[in-house]
Amino acid sequence: MLRKIIGILAAGSLFIAVNMWAVPTGADILKRMDDFQDQRSDITCKADITQQRVGQGIKDLQWIFYRKDKTDSILIVETAPESEKGRGYLRVENNFFLYLPNTRTFQTINRDESIGGSDARAGDFEKRKYSELYRVETNAQGKELIEEVKLGKVSAYMVTLVGIVNDVTYPKQVYWLDKDNFFQYKVQSYSLSGTLMQTAYYPKWTQIEGKFLAVQMIFIDEFDKGNKSIVELSAISLAPLEDSIFTKAYLENLSK
């Protein structure tokens, strides 16, 4: 879940609207996805997360995200519930730290470690192009598997991406992309064994300063059936951020 949120906020899913008049090729799609990643900006927002785990009930969480484009820096701090307030993540370039308020320590997180027990890995925050990680799956005749489908009332391309390197989080992902502007409406992620691990929906989008951003995300855990999360973004600002936000001292000060 966190990986997807970061994907939206950090990996640059601030989409520029693009019109596609013909069925694109796999190369076109990967290029569009890479182009979107380059559309970056400083961003701050609040994420309200409603999380359900089977047997445990429902929990409401709140995070604040900060991202500075120029220094490729990210700060995430948990602000609710009160019992978890203050836990935070700081990333500057490829250096990733986790702050644990209970022990008052920073831990270094390496690129293949998960973030907060989620499916996000530190490596997901790196600027890596889709075209360097994936290719579009082909059938026995070598034809790329790109279909025009309906998702509710929305017309979309369904495209299957398979990993071409070993260190992708999911070796296979199926995307439902808006036909007109390439919004990611739905993503299904599969493990190496072909098990469906997660289905993600992005049903609500907004436009800020000419860029598009998903503001509602729904994550269905297909491995542990019944677990799901809804994420809603608000208080979004694209105002420039100070360098002084992205330090260990600032994060520790935010914490309780």
């Binding site: 701050t44 609500k204 907004t206 436009q207 800020i208 503001v215 608000s234 208080a235 979004i236 951020l241």
Partner: peptide, 14 residues
């Protein structure tokens, strides 16, 4: 699928 920007944007950094 589009949400009114005014509902989610903030003038100040949260």
């Amino acid at each position: 699928t589009m949400v009114d920007t005014n509902k989610v944007i903030s003038n100040a950094i949260v």
